[in-house]
Design a protein around this nucleic acid. Structure first.
Lengths: 338, 338
DNA sequence: CTCGCTGGATGAAACGTTTCAGGCGGAGGA
DNA sequence: TCCTCCGCCTGAAACGTTTCATCCAGCGAG
């Protein structure tokens, strides 16, 4: 069924080693032999067996990326960026989805370790030191953390400065004249959420403005955003903020919907800023201002660091790359002329 | 570095075969031996080498799914469904993204074939017979087509009845009293688009209503939807439809945005129905009526067919499963009481 | 004419598993 | 007492590559 190198060799009337040479170093084989072998390969429909190759090589050419949520546009873009780089270098990316579940993540890592992947891009479910990952690092499998705890000495990481992102959003709203601002998102223990909030609070404090009203959500989704906005609408007019900064665009879209449903106009009654700048942000009924992250570049850089460490583990020095977000200003935060 | 079975055997003072037995058939090993071996495994941090295992077995436990677009919520849900089933059976899913590009698809298939994957779930870039896939089928690698050309004798397929979906949408709008209906989507050559349009036309014809005004878009995205709606708005009032059926929710969301921007109210001035029922449909500023497809189940069923064929190729009979869509009616098509 | 080289091909070892035919010692039956 | 069977373990073969030491024929230089 699946022809092997041996059969190809037989058919071409050469030795097994020669076929291997045609496959891997065609230049050291004489043209006529090469041609005969290639014909044999063609006729038999020979396809290299990657398991055998890897077994011999001790290592695969596959890079794995383990993401928290495949259906989050943020991660799909990171994946795309990583793919660009890895495929450019002749490798392949496999995408694994932990779905935020530690045990699924664990099982994925087990399998990937058995497969002796070339390296690992991962946004771990939980922050902090990961004995599981440490073990892989010790084994010599390069690991790059994506959008997670920087500063670890023995692995690279890439991230976006979420404190700055929060700051940008809050500064923008303050400049537009808003004084009562709400922050919506959660859980507040998530590093991303905490950082964005901290950035916003710092920016407001510097301007002598009161700290934001914080409405915590159990997760970052459209429906939790809707609920949170309902709460805000229910506040007495004196305490109601004139602007909302959401930790994520999904939350912001939910909020937008709830506000509209209550007859409030965005941005006239309440301004709105989201985070991530997903495709649907610009396409929302009221185009959403949003903090933009270089998602694809995050993936590209992570993959580059990985390949670098992988090809040259001796001289490689671990790095922690931090990108800067910027703000896409759209209608949802542009107060109409009065 | 990477301990092998041999070293484990040495340390535990048993033979190599015994270690293998502990790994694969622990019940036939005496408890005390088993314990000794397991301790050795622990101490050495031994991890099975999957390449060697596969090489021996001739086949991997990995199922690949090749999708047209990882960032389309439709496909991420299909992937999730497939994962459920495959992981339940102890396998693993790798996701490959062709991005609609035939050459990338080709390269992915090459690599997957070299890796001797257990099977393949694929939505090929182009419809019709695929010599590339035929070759894999001949090799004994089961292939299940997802949402593509059914009726092929030598492979299974799963799909959703798009003609019915189009029919549901059109019937719903007709029942709500709409007589002038537009169909927006494209390219019209895409099977899905063509089928949805055909279903809608049939339903209208049966009711003696005029065929829909067809506005073709170059692709299915938010921005093309916006452009198409602009065109419709520009029509003279006499020719302007009172309802739009969009081939896809992205298009519908774009249309919704453009209509709102022109001061038209949805659904009062123009009703809107989308397709796919992605998460953002229910969360849109005007919650979008949409034809719902059982996306996760599509993935689950595809994976089941694959595993079935894989475990029992002799008695397996190829099947073509077609699911029925249904309509989620929301505000965008509910004419307000008059 | 012989020696040393060189381009090109060969054959065997090694990678880490799984599997399978055997081997061995002890217990039970004749 | 001897034979058989059984439970447990062993050792070697096989999977399909890659790699490396070796070999061979031809050829130019001395």
């Amino acid at each position: 069924m699946a022809a092997s190198i041996k059969e190809v060799a037989q058919r071409a009337g050469v030795s097994l080693g020669t076929v291997s040479n045609v496959l891997n170093r065609p230049d050291i084989v004489s043209p006529q032999t090469r041609k005969r072998v290639q014909e044999a390969i063609e006729e038999l429909g020979f396809v290299r067996n990657d398991s055998a190759r890897q077994l011999r090589a001790g290592r695969s050419r596959t890079v794995a990326i383990v993401v928290l949520d495949v259906s989050n546009p943020f991660f799909t873009d990171v994946v795309r960026g990583a793919e660009t780089v890895v495929e450019g270098a002749g490798g392949m990316v496999v995408v694994c989805n932990s779905g935020g579940d530690a045990s699924r993540e664990h099982r994925h890592l087990d399998v990937l370790e058995e497969q002796r992947v070339q390296g690992l891009l991962v946004t771990p479910v939980s922050d902090g030191r990961q004995p599981r990952l440490d073990r892989m690092v010790k084994r010599g499998i390069p690991v790059v953390l994506v959008d997670r705890g920087a500063g670890l000495a023995d692995q690279c990481s890439v991230a976006v400065d979420d404190v700055l992102g929060g700051r940008l959003a809050a500064e923008h709203l303050a400049e537009r004249g808003h004084r009562a601002i709400a922050f919506v998102g959660g859980p507040l223990t998530l590093r991303q959420v905490a950082d964005r909030r901290a950035g916003a609070e710092a920016a407001l404090a510097e301007r002598g403005l009161p700290p934001p009203l914080v409405v915590e959500t159990p997760m970052l989704s459209v429906s939790t955003g809707r609920t949170a906005a309902d709460e805000i609408v229910a506040l007495p007019a004196t305490r109601r903020p004139t602007a909302i900064f959401c930790a994520n665009d999904l939350v912001a879209l939910g909020a937008l919907q709830a506000l509209t449903a209550h007859g409030l106009r965005v941005p006239d009654d309440i301004a709105l800023v989201g985070y991530d700048d997903i495709e649907f942000a610009a396409g929302a009924a009221v185009p959403l201002s949003s903090v933009r992250q270089p998602r694809e570049q995050l993936g590209r850089t992570a993959a580059q660091l990985l390949l670098e460490e992988s090809t040259d583990p001796e001289t490689h020095e671990h790095r922690h790359v931090v990108f800067q977000p910027d703000l896409a200003v759209r209608q949802s935060s542009e107060r109409k002329r009065r």
